[in-house]
Design a protein around this nucleic acid. Structure first.
Lengths: 350, 350
DNA sequence: AGTTCTGCTGCAAACGTTTGCAGTGAGGAG
DNA sequence: CTCCTCACTGCAAACGTTTGCAGCAGAACT
């Protein structure tokens, strides 16, 4: 029912190959013919069938984007940016949700492979070796995980975690907790590595809790354990968990940051809307989405390019961090903790 | 390079048509042959090329999902649910973002039309007539807008808005504001209609502000105007705007809900995490996503089905609504306002 | 004038499938 | 023994494109 290239050819009195060229290689067709063909096409409402084109050219003008959880607020800005960037280049984008499951992830890659020119694999839960294997079936760009030999885009969350721990140490915290992310997360390992380093450098002790699901309930679930452990500050794998943790802590009667400081990672929109406003490490999710699309579409056909982008992160100090327990029973004044008291007071009421 | 049906045929010593049937009509091929073919396919890593299949069958096993703004927290749960539901039926899903722009929306539908079996049009900004026109090119299911003659899924936000206004009236508010959504939004019109009705029934006056962009800044921007207008309670087009409004009100020195009550719509995850916790109308976004996919895939080929689903909404009373200004300088006790004082007191500090 | 070049167009094969039709052989009915 | 049926398989056309090759006319050389 929809108009095909043949209809346009008949209508404009030329061969289908001329119609085809009018669209895919306009310089090869006489300007007069071209305008005539275009007119007919317009009138018939013809739009080339990309699937048919893909069959012969091998380019689908589609890309896949696989994320762990669409509803996790970290991802939507990334998805949006990737979609926008892709569409600018006339690409469409399949979005799929692995539900934090490595096996689903693998299935998705395989299922999508034939109908895309490449796949953006975002915060994968699969093993490196499996990813490498899959990358031989379809071009892959990995986001949030560094794999040598594959094009990757990472946010330098190690740097950010270091800054966060430095910040906490600077506030006088000596016993710091780390709420780990899900098993299989490269980012979580990086954070752990870097936080441990920074803690050691600052003469603080680091206690790791987890792995945990990277969700709000996941954060809330460890609140009691955190409290029992006696740490005075906590760095969470992401903002969602930090928020869950804060809720859990409140439920247990602890005050943030008076009794315990919390810092998150990601700087999702939510983090400045909750109370207390969350101190967090801002990760450039949108930029990562764009960079990944660029990277995927850049090496047109020469697979095996192995570009690598590392995006800066940044510590955003808000109200969820405050001075650590003071041995002299007097809080150390100064530093970024200045903003905290207001939040403390306000929360002390509840 | 990837294995085709022909490779499998050669390897297993049968004709390609037999291989094809092994996958698409297994009962037509001898069990022995079938297992042999399957073995070869497995070994060669063969997966049917869906684009090629689509070319001849006309079914792509893809669906499109067009939303106004991926990053608007209302949509991700819907997207996630739709994707999951689609995948269960072995469908993949294109996600696209119209940026609240009707023209982009139209382009997207047209661009996607040829490579999907149908499109989910979510909170469209286009005109009804254009949507009807497009629905002749590709099966459409419209979410959040009622159009006779087309399959639609709506959340009964009129009912919810009515409940919200009743709630406010019950709290003693007589001058109520309505923060409208974007121009072209059917939902916004519905809310307005229903809120006006409920207000009139309750003997209250309704003032409409807008239209506005359905975002947090959009809500914040009208704060001053709202304050000047003298309304004592406000219903916002969505939670995001309600939250923005609350921020704006705070910035102007007003207290919520002591000076002014605010209720949102959607019940996004955020709304119970902010302070004060937002009273809001819960809309079943995930259920809508699932229902829409079902509807699209249900009438396999018999277009022109015109199913219609209306999903219940529900008022969730939290802490952002409190008693209205009392002529006798004494707050009316009772009703759902009981929960409010705590929030009031806590916020009065800032 | 003959030759080569250039710009345009048509022809037909190919991409990886599905599917109506026809062919095969075996088994059962008469 | 013949005929029919049945289960299975092969053949080839078709889906809507792209693209290498060849043809053709006219222009530009020699």
């Amino acid at each position: 029912m929809p108009a095909t290239i043949r209809d346009v050819a008949r209508e404009s009195g030329v061969h289908i190959s001329t119609v085809s060229r009018t669209f895919s290689a306009p310089h090869l067709v006489n300007p007069d013919t071209r305008t005539r063909v275009l007119a007919c096409a317009e009138q018939l409402g013809y739009r080339p069938n990309r699937a048919a084109r893909a069959l012969i050219t091998g380019r689908t003008y589609n890309v896949g984007l696989i994320v762990a959880d669409i509803a996790n607020p970290f991802f939507p800005p990334l998805i949006k940016a990737a979609e926008s960037q892709a569409r600018q280049r006339d690409y469409h984008i399949f979005v799929a949700d692995s539900n934090e499951d490595a096996a689903v992830e693998e299935d998705l890659v395989r299922a999508l492979a034939k109908q895309v020119d490449g796949i953006l694999l975002c915060s994968p839960r699969m093993s490196n070796s499996l990813i490498e294997l899959l990358s031989r079936e379809v071009p892959l760009v990995v986001i949030n995980r560094q794999i040598t030999g594959l094009p990757t885009v990472v946010m330098d969350v190690a740097q950010g975690a270091g800054l966060a721990v430095d910040h906490l140490v600077g506030l006088g915290h000596r016993r710091i907790g780390l709420i780990a992310g899900p098993r299989g997360s490269w980012t979580s390992k990086e954070i752990r590595r870097s936080a441990a380093l920074a803690a050691r450098a600052g003469g603080a002790e680091l206690t790791v809790f987890g792995p945990n699901p990277p969700t709000e309930p996941g954060g809330a679930a460890v609140a009691e354990q955190v409290l029992r452990s006696g740490v005075s500050a906590v760095l969470a794998y992401n903002d969602l968990m930090a928020i869950g943790l804060i809720e859990g802590l409140h439920a247990q009667g602890a005050r943030v940051p008076a009794d315990i400081s919390v810092v998150g990672i990601d700087d999702i929109a939510l983090s400045r809307l909750i109370h207390p406003k969350l101190t967090t490490v801002a990760t450039p999710a949108a930029a990562a989405g764009r960079a990944a699309v660029d990277m995927l579409l850049a090496h047109g056909d020469d697979r095996r390019t192995t570009a690598h982008a590392s995006l800066q992160t940044e510590l955003v100090i808000r109200d969820s961090t405050g001075p650590g327990p003071d041995p002299h029973s007097h809080a150390d004044p100064g530093d970024a903790a200045a903003a905290a008291p207001r939040a403390v007071a306000s929360y002390a009421k509840e």
